[in-house]
Design a protein around this nucleic acid. Sequence first.
DNA 1: GTAGGGTTAG
Length: 854
Amino acid sequence: MFAGDMHSPIYNCITGQYMATTLFPSSTLLVPASLKEANPITRNSSSKLLVNCKTLKELKQLHCDMMKKGLLCHKPASNLNKLIASSVQIGTLESLDYARNAFGDDDGNMASLFMYNCLIRGYASAGLGDQAILLYVQMLVMGIVPDKYTFPFLLSACSKILALSEGVQVHGAVLKMGLEGDIFVSNSLIHFYAECGKVDLGRKLFDGMLERNVVSWTSLINGYSGRDLSKEAVSLFFQMVEAGVEPNPVTMVCVISACAKLKDLELGKKVCSYISELGMELSTIMVNALVDMYMKCGDICAARQIFDECANKNLVMYNTIMSNYVHHEWASDVLVILDEMLQKGPRPDKVTMLSTIAACAQLGDLSVGKSSHAYVLRNGLEGWDNISNAIIDMYMKCGKREAACKVFEHMPNKTVVTWNSLIAGLVRDGDMELAWRIFDEMLERDLVSWNTMIGALVQVSMFEEAIELFREMQNQGIPGDRVTMVGIASACGYLGALDLAKWVCTYIEKNDIHVDLQLGTALVDMFSRCGDPSSAMHVFKRMEKRDVSAWTAAIGVMAMEGNTEGAIELFNEMLEQKVKPDDVVFVALLTACSHGGSVDQGRQLFWSMEKAHGIRPHIVHYGCMVDLLGRAGLLEEAVDLIQSMPIEPNDVVWGSLLAACRKHKNVELAHYAAEKLTQLAPERVGIHVLLSNIYASAGKWTDVARVRLQMKEKGVQKVPGSSSIEVQGLIHEFTSGDESHAENTHIGLMLEEINCRLSEAGYVPDTTNVLLDVDEQEKEHLLSRHSEKLAMAYGLITTGQGIPIRVVKNLRMCSDCHSFAKLVSKLYNREITVRDNNRYHFFKEGFCSCRDYW
DNA sequence: GTAGGGTTAG
């Protein structure tokens, strides 16, 4: 892509590292013809030459010649003033240093007020606020009295480094000198206060001004928009128009960017129509702001159209559209724009390269990524931290860990982002251990560091650890944000910790965290998994926007309950709102049908996928269908479906059939399914367990022993059943037959009492659920110590009457525990929720929400 | 002389 790089880098021709970060057309290197001529320099001609100097090199040579000829002196309006002005104008850090050295005079000549003003301005625009302030102090020490020109520069310097207390002192000096009536000074003060987060003080000043101009209004508008008060910014703009002040292009840029921040397309369009009403011509900076606004408001096509129609695109406009494409993850468009730019646009700079490299990271495009890296090195852009950080991220996402580490090691100034990029890369690479170690040893962590680790822990199912880390974050006084809460919400969901889930909601409200699409969806899912469908739907209904994922989460709530009608109703509502279904929503729908035993609806939805919505069923959908048919006992139809599948059935499909065989006690078919399964996924624990369970419940103990032996030989271990219950914010976990709990004795006594009352009510343990070849009494004993029973008993002991008991199980609940829970809910008058690995059961007054179908 | 646009990691 960069083969046609005709403008070879010239940075090494220009002395000084600061120049290296800016790309100059090679023409600027040419020495002006005037300098080569042997004509003698006069005071007048040198003055003109000084003003026209474009590079420090030219200036230095001219300076040298003039000194030789004695054409410089400290008199007012002398050439020295022009030399300094010109040097400042060049604007590089080196030229600023040059100016600084030129005006200090060993002969005791004093620098003029003009020189100080000039250099303070130079430092301010270079962002070197502290240097500007130092210079101001120096001029006071030298007894030079600042004037009305000094203060705007100085205040701009204070704004750049957010030096509030210094700026306030400057304000004091302004008042002392009676300069507050100067409109330039007042405007600068408004800007300064706004930048330092004191927009109210700026407003006070604005209100007290006797005379205001368009810059006064614009400064305040921009102040509001920059402090996240974009609504005020826009309304101030309309006030300004009403007051008869005509906006200029800068005003429009500020207003349009306020609309962009609000993501309010309608408002943006309204401002656009104002522009044409006022008859303003669209300047390049305005077009740029419009492109950005349309992009941020999500109307990417409109943005692209304006961009394409713009005849004189500048570098910033290219950079604007590219960075927005990156944000929208339209990475391939970034490369299209880059292509156009290389052909007929301005030379890519560091910001361009940042977007390009980010796009390569998104696309996993190593080849463009590598040439971008080369371009960065050729042009000396790697000194900019952000570029190197992006390169690390790109190599990590392209799977080139070594290349990323090499860049990392060579970075002299690693920032927190550098470390974060590395950690995130390691997490994606699956190296949690190293990621943890680096996180632990990091000297400076920011919110992203914490969020990365919390997200990583959730990804690897270390939910308690994720919550633990969040607690540590709280202890260190770092509040979480939207991203943190998405991670914590999913951790809560998987743990089924409802109390914690509710606390998460309160935390979000208290900390005024905006519930966006992602967080909203995470919360719906969290409550759904915690067995609180009404809270889940409450969150869903309050979401301002809902995409297909949000609807899927809500349909998932219905699926958890086995509420087919509810699921289909939501789906229809979603279609009405013109949300396009994807493959995932059908998984939720089919699951809902499966749990609800709604075979007809399931079949119908399955066939409508391709016909009505153009979505070809994937293997998971076939899995869902096999599950649906199998659960309903339609084993033959399930087998037929498997045989007619256009895709090779995988382990999930056979697994579903096997599970159905267990439920409907079809040993023969189970044997067949298990054989297929072992071929496909010999390492899968589930198959062995299921198969041995099937043999066990059919009483075929020799077969059970054989499978168990196979498991042992292959080193496969059964995942132990475990149930947890949250009591007073703490999660208590029990495994089957667990005696390790501190309250073990109490739990045992409680279980005895329950069993007594249950048998009085006619309960007979269903020992076919015990999968060991032991005698009946032993079976009963084992059965009575199933993890969910232990958790329920503990719940009865520790929580008061009327408080629902909520248990989360890692495996599917067995039918005996199901009957047990139904009776306990009746005899103890308690609501009980058990969420297993696939749905939840809500027990009340002796009945279960699943209507015994699961 | 004051006001404005593009920036990586979760």
